[in-house]
Every structure is written in C-alpha cells, then in structure tokens.
C-alpha cells in the first residue's frame, strides 16, 4: 500500500490542499475521476484554531484571534489513513483533501499529483507572482534633486 514519501512532501501537499480554492479543487478532483471507497475515522467537523503572533514580530507569542478550520480523517480500504485540515467551513473540501492525502500515500500518487496537485501549485504560484508584480509596481524609486551649481 504505502509508497515512499517524506514528511516534508506530505506537509507540502496537505498545505497546498488547505489553502486551495474549493471550486477549483472540486473541478480537478472530478476530472481526476477516481473516488475511492473509504471509511470516516473522524467525520468532517468545523471548528476554530487560535492564531498566534509574536510581539515585535520576533519575540514572545500572544493570541491574535481565531480562524475557521474544518478537519476530518478517513481510511481507504487498504487501511491507508488520510487527514484533511482545511481553512474555512467546507466539509466537502476537507473530505476531498483527506481522500487526496490518503491516495498520495499509495501507488496512485504520481497520477494524482499530475492531475490535481501540480495544477493547484502552479495556479497558487501564478496568483502569488501576479500580486507580487502589482506590489513591485508600487515600489517608490527615490531620486535626488540636485539644486544649484557645484
């Protein structure tokens, strides 16, 4: 069942799924086609987590405020366990994330990665780059006024 993957890789795909746009994720997941049978270990539930910050950006931590999160856990027929932890209150999104997390630990990983994760990662990167490009256009270029004759 389990193919080789590192904790870092798993962290990467879970993070990508967590902040993915739900409509887009559902689209890619449907195009991928397979929807394996699974059993809930923990049915999707919405809750909150307390987001912490640091004093001065680098010092001791403090509680800033909460954000909504939906989580769930499931197991595939072969016993592979998938977790979904996604921002917001969508149970459907958490469910998709958990299924993809489980399948990414199996032989289906390569195909699934190409069909769902790679497009999501590329779109995320494009979104971030587009925003950074707009920010860059608002960067102040100072110039010095020279007055009088030297």
């Amino acid at each position: 069942m389990n193919t080789k993957f590192s904790a870092e890789e798993r962290k990467g795909w879970m993070s990508l799924l967590a902040s993915a746009d739900e409509v887009r994720l559902a689209e890619l997941w449907q195009e991928y086609g397979a929807d394996p049978a699974c059993e809930w270990l923990r049915a999707p539930e919405a809750g909150g987590v307390m987001v912490r910050g640091r004093m001065g950006g680098s010092g001791a931590s403090f509680n800033l405020g909460e954000m909504t999160v939906t989580r769930c856990a499931l197991s595939l027929e072969d016993g592979t366990v998938g977790h979904g932890y996604v921002q917001g209150r969508s149970k459907a999104k958490a469910g998709m994330a958990a299924k993809i997390d489980a399948l990414m630990q199996t032989g289906a990983a390569a195909g699934l990665s190409t069909a769902v994760l790679e497009p999501l990662a590329a779109e995320r990167k494009a979104r971030k780059t587009a925003r950074a490009a707009k920010a860059a256009a608002t960067k102040v270029e100072f110039f010095t006024m020279v007055r009088g004759e030297d």
């Binding site: 987590v49 987001v51 950006g57 931590s61 989580r71 971030k128 925003r131």
Partner: peptide, 17 residues
C-alpha cells in the same frame, strides 16, 4: 466552534507583502 488548538506563531518576516 470547537477549539481545535493553537497555531504556531505566524512568521510575519515571511509575509508576502
């Protein structure tokens, strides 16, 4: 909302500004 826990402190030095 049930409280699932506390996050790691956000790293504002890593902010996409």
């Amino acid at each position: 909302l049930p409280r699932f826990g506390y996050t790691l402190p956000v790293e504002t030095g890593e902010m996409a500004c």
